[in-house]
């Protein structure tokens, strides 16, 4: 099914996108829905984008639900391991 649900968040960072070029990322869109490429009926999809540069300025991820949870755990662990004072 198409879930119609979409989470969004403002971002400040960079991603390597179309043509191998880095670009500034301003927006994240997160949704669980049909993937374009991954061999699954549904995946957790993440778009890291800069809409001001057009629809093609996007890095797309399609992760199985378990992979997405592993990614969340890994991100939280990486952030938790940062020495005090380094986080900005």
């Amino acid at each position: 099914m198409c879930t119609y649900t979409t989470e969004t968040a403002s971002m400040d960072g960079s991603a390597k996108g179309p043509g191998g070029a880095w670009f500034h990322v301003t927006d994240a869109t997160v949704y669980y829905d049909h993937p374009v490429h991954a061999m699954a009926d549904h995946t957790l999809n993440i778009d890291l984008a800069d809409p001001s540069r057009g629809p093609g300025a996007r890095v797309a991820l399609e992760l199985t639900a378990s992979s997405a949870r592993e990614l969340v755990t890994a991100i939280e662990a990486a952030l938790a391991a940062v020495p005090r004072g380094l986080l900005t």
Partner: peptide
């Protein structure tokens, strides 16, 4: 939302703007 864009990029852009 996305004139001339690749279909998957257009779908992502439209979704981000509410569908």
């Amino acid at each position: 939302e996305a004139p001339g864009a690749d279909p998957d990029d257009a779908a992502a852009a439209a979704r981000a703007q509410g569908g």
